[in-house]
């Protein structure tokens, strides 16, 4: 029986990265070429399963012949490219990107890499001044703002949005990486319940006119949570355990199994702490789900909890 689809042949190209000749595939990005040879390039808005939006700019590298730095996550390699990932210009921009984010966003639940990078690049978020109190960011009108008084500096601090039983949105932790919008939209779910609204420093993730999720198109697939890099989007279970100080990843085990609902066969990764499921994810690298689930797979595990 014939079994496989035709695979297009890919050409190889050679580029220089940090003085090292690197051979990679035509169409690969600079980021992929760097990872192939073990050069760490920090990323925030990049995810393997999403088309690069190259907005966070923490992955910028110096490309000879290019006036500005270029985003490694989306720039394809071309034969003969000469790339520097550790030059002073690169380090300054990365330091400042991290510093600008850390000075305006609560990164307390962002992954460990972020904090390591902040240290390694020497970002100093505290040098920008005293943070202003939380504000009603959803009411900002494009093109109009009143500068803050008294030397305070703006942040994205705002109240947590909790309008349903399954997940919370804490946009004080949002770095506007667009991943949730992409996952909710064209890159996976196609529900388009959220989008980037407003502009400039007032840009934010929003439903139409900030209606609560139950009034929006949201179908609670949680694919936005699956891609959020900072914990701005979180299971209620995790949010509550963290609030009680009981969230402990060292006591969690992750087990892969298959969803007990429909016949598609989605792989679930069950995060279990104290014999309770506290979070459900799906592997990004599995062809069936690419990390995505539906509401039943993501949240429909309660029937198996407790003593039944």
């Amino acid at each position: 029986m014939t079994t496989v689809a035709p695979v297009a042949l890919r050409r190889q190209v050679e580029v220089m990265i940090d003085g090292q000749a690197v051979t990679t595939w035509q169409g690969a990005t600079i980021l992929e070429a760097c990872r192939d040879v073990g050069i760490e390039v920090p990323t925030l808005c990049y995810l393997e399963t999403l088309a690069p939006v190259n907005v966070c700019r923490v992955c910028v590298v110096e490309l000879e012949g290019s006036r500005a730095l270029v985003p490694a996550c989306s720039r394809p390699v071309a034969a003969g490219m000469v790339v520097h990932t550790g030059s002073e210009r690169v380090r300054t921009s990365r330091r400042m990107v991290l510093e600008l984010l850390a000075s305006s966003v609560d990164l307390s639940t962002a992954g460990g890499d972020v904090h390591r990078w902040i240290d390694e690049y020497g970002a100093r978020p505290d040098r920008h001044g005293e943070a202003a109190p939380p504000s009603a960011r959803d009411r900002a009108h494009a093109g109009h703002h009143e500068p803050l008084e008294g030397g305070l500096v703006a942040t994205v601090a705002q109240p947590v949005k909790r309008d349903n039983d399954q997940y919370v949105r804490d946009y004080a932790k949002c770095i506007l990486c667009y991943k949730c919008v992409e996952a909710c939209g064209e890159e996976a779910q196609h529900t388009f319940a959220i989008a980037v609204a407003g502009r400039g420093f007032d840009a934010r993730i929003s439903t139409e006119m900030d209606v609560a999720l139950p009034e929006s198109a949201c179908v609670y697939c949680g694919n936005c949570i699956g891609v959020c890099p900072t914990g701005a989007l979180m299971f209620v279970s995790e949010h509550e355990l963290r609030a009680r100080g009981e969230w402990d990843e060292s006591r969690q085990e992750v087990t892969s199994t298959i969803c007990p609902y429909c016949g598609v066969g989605c792989t679930l990764e069950l995060h279990v702490q104290d014999n309770r499921i506290v979070k459900v994810t799906s592997p990004l690298d599995h062809d069936v789900t690419s990390g995505n689930l539906c509401v039943k797979g993501r949240f429909g595990f309660e029937f198996a909890q407790g003593d039944r």
């Binding site: 984010l101 502009r199 400039g200 420093f201």
Partner: peptide, 18 residues
């Protein structure tokens, strides 16, 4: 520039504010 930045990339979105 703070008002007219589209807000897409961090350097401009936060940089113009700062």
């Amino acid at each position: 520039f703070r008002d007219e930045s589209c807000g897409q990339c961090v350097p401009c979105r936060v940089g113009t504010q700062r």
